[in-house]
Structures are given as structure tokens and as C-alpha cells.
Amino acid sequence: MSEEKKEREPLFSPKNLKLIKDPLSINNPITVQVLGICSALAVTAKLKPAIVMTISVMVVLAVSNVVISLLRNGIPPRIRIIVQLVVIATMVILVDQVLKAFVYDVSKQLSVFVGLIITNCIIMGRLEAFAMGNKPWPAFLDGIGNALGYGIILIIVAFFREFLGSGTIFDIHVIPQGFYDFGYKNNGLMILPPMALITVGVIIWVQRYRNRDLIEDH
């Protein structure tokens, strides 16, 4: 038993850790691959829905990745996209039902966007590009990594939108009343979707300024 373990790759080998780290920075699904933008704009007006969305995507992506990875040798190539969709759709409906049962308010705020996780390009992309050709454990890490990469951007955007747009963090007022007395106003524009796009743009700008390798040659 112990001998067998030695031959195996350690669970968190550098190669496996890279699966988690890369999507957080140089291969971020939102800022570098520009996938999953639509939901990023929709659910980032407040921090709480952004975090619930992140967790939901993480569950769906990690579990679907593992399931597809386990099935990968038996899936007939001709219907592989359909099989992937069935797995994703099943997971999304499960997540939706669980949210409705236990965090009803948040599920109302997320409304259609939980259902739309099915169409989140990140998920299909990872299943097709990674899970179809890798073992379950790396596939699991890849799912967690990409969901974290997606989530971290959502949370950064939601932080600025909620802070500047509503003056709150997690619905708790953080801007002192004194500021309002002096004429400070919450910026209502931050609540609207266009400002989410601009915030994502600023994040992309900062990231490329700090990491010149990401800038495309033209």
C-alpha cells in the first residue's frame, strides 16, 4: 500500500497546484479568457449574491469536471457535448433547488442566473478542454481553480459596486453618516450593469499593467 503511494504523483504536486493558481492570475477565465462575462455583470451589484454565485459555479464546475473525467473513457465522442450538457444541467438544477430550499432570498436575487450557469462558457470550456482528457483529481482541482478565478473577479467587482453604489459591505453601512451630511452621495451608476463592465475593464487594465506578458502583440 505504501509502495503504491510512492509511485503516485503527490496530491498537491507543482503541476496540480498550477491548476489552481493559473486561473487566479495568468489564465483567469474572466480577465484573460473573457468567458462568463454576462453573469459577472448581472450578479455583482451586491457582495452576497456574488459570493453565492461563486460557490454555486464552484460546485457545478468541480462536480461536473469529476463526473466527466470519470466517464471520459466511455463517452462516445459523437454525443460527448450532449453528455456534458446533461451532467451540467443536472448539477445546475440541483444547486438551484438547494438554494431555493435553504437560501430563498439569495435565490430570488440570483433569479434566472443560476439557471444560466448551464450556459456559462467557462463550464463547457473546462469540461471539453480539460476533464475529457484528465484524471478525476486534476479535473477536480481545475474546476476549483477556474471557479475561484471566476469568483475572485466577481467579488472584487461586487465589492466596489456595493461600496460605491450603496455605501454598504454585506448590507452593513460602512460610510459614516457624517459624509452624507457633507453632501456625499452614493453613486447610483455603480448599481447599473455598464459600471460592472467598466470595473472589469479596469481590473484587466491593472492586471496587464502588472504582467506585460498578457498584452497581445499587434
Binding site: V83, V86, L94, Q97, A101, F102
Partner: peptide, 30 residues
């Protein structure tokens, strides 16, 4: 291919209907 698709769909359907039935009381309460 047909057998694979049929079995996959039946498993998914069984899973979803079980979950829906178990979670229904909580959802109705909400």
C-alpha cells in the same frame, strides 16, 4: 450510443426527482 444516452438520462432524471421531492417541504415553507 443509444444505450449510453438512455442510461445517463435515466440516472439524471432519478437524481433530480429524488432531490425535488426531498427539498419540496423546505421550498414550500419558504
Amino acid at each position: 450510443i443509444f444505450r449510453y444516452a438512455a442510461i445517463l438520462v435515466i440516472i439524471a432524471a432519478a437524481l433530480l426527482s429524488t432531490a425535488a421531492m426531498m427539498l419540496k417541504p423546505f421550498q414550500e415553507r419558504n
